[in-house]
């Protein structure tokens, strides 16, 4: 529907001058962010650098005090996560936001269940369980997640990586163009982490833009196209895996090396 060759230059999501304070605490202090079509943008930063708040402002979970958000060039104001979803921005939260006592299909459709077609669905408001199961199954195999076999399994019986897969499947199942993943590998083992990174690459192939928040430098440098370094509530730098090493990124993150935009270090801009 959109011509990708034309759209590549315009950011799909862009934020300017975001500020969010909690009483006396300044969580983010004038942050800019651009996300381009089909790229993986990692957001890294020390604890308290404002990563989570930044993400919450982008996904409607928090309303920024100051600043503007644009999606595909249009100005937007998210008052809640549904507004962001409607604009095509899906979030996989660190705490996953799944209902453990419901099955995989119900969780994927949670909040946007499909009713039975025709008059039956209209009158009884009954759910189309079969269609939802088939759709969920298709989406999960599309993601290449083989560990989920039985779509009627309750989420509480799944492992951490499987739950992550369900959450990711839910985020991309409804054709969103931006997916935000908050620490998707934090609770996972090596093998499951590799699976999640594969899923991220597959999303990029499908022209989905991904924001990846992570502490894990090897993961970040493995999949990210660009890396947004957050420090003390500000954007200290945007680097790429080609121009910087993980050690450089950590240095900017901790303030040992100067950033390139603002006061990541006292010396000013990077050459």
């Amino acid at each position: 529907m959109n011509d990708t060759s034309m759209a590549t230059d315009a950011p799909r999501l862009s934020a300017r001058g975001l500020v969010k304070t909690y009483g006396p605490v300044v969580a983010i202090d004038g942050v800019d962010l651009d996300l381009y079509p089909g790229e993986v943008l990692a957001v890294i930063g020390d604890n308290g650098a404002g990563k989570s708040t930044l993400i919450k402002c982008l996904t409607g979970a928090e309303i920024p005090d100051v600043g503007t958000l644009k999606v595909e060039g249009r100005s937007v104001h998210f008052r809640n996560p549904q507004d962001a979803q409607a604009a095509g921005i899906e979030t996989v939260y660190q705490q996953l936001a799944l209902a453990p006592a419901l099955d995989i299909a119900s969780n994927i459709f949670l909040g946007r269940e499909r009713r039975r077609p025709g008059l039956v669905g209209k009158v009884t408001r009954g759910l189309d369980h079969r269609a939802m199961r088939e759709f969920a199954e298709a989406k999960i195999s599309e993601l290449g997640i083989q560990t989920l076999q039985d779509i009627t399994q309750l989420v509480e019986t799944l492992s951490g990586g499987q739950r992550q897969a369900v959450a990711v499947a839910r985020a991309i199942a409804f054709g969103s163009r931006v997916v935000v993943l908050d620490e998707p590998t934090a609770a996972l083992g090596v093998r499951e982490t590799a699976q999640v990174l594969d899923v991220i690459r597959r999303l990029r192939e499908q022209d989905v833009s991904v924001i990846l928040i992570s502490h894990n430098m090897p993961n970040v440098f493995d999949v990210a196209d660009r890396i947004h370094v957050q420090r003390l509530g500000r954007r200290a730098a945007v680097v790429t895996p080609e121009t910087h090493t993980p050690a450089d990124a950590v240095a900017i993150m901790t303030g040992a090396a100067p950033g390139d935009s603002g006061d990541g270090g006292e010396e000013g801009a990077l050459p």
Partner: peptide, 18 residues
């Protein structure tokens, strides 16, 4: 479904758009 989800975990339900 939403009643169950809210009872399971209200924070998760809210994030899921309920």
């Amino acid at each position: 479904r939403h009643v169950y989800a809210v009872g399971n975990d209200p924070a998760a339900a809210r994030l899921a758009g309920i």
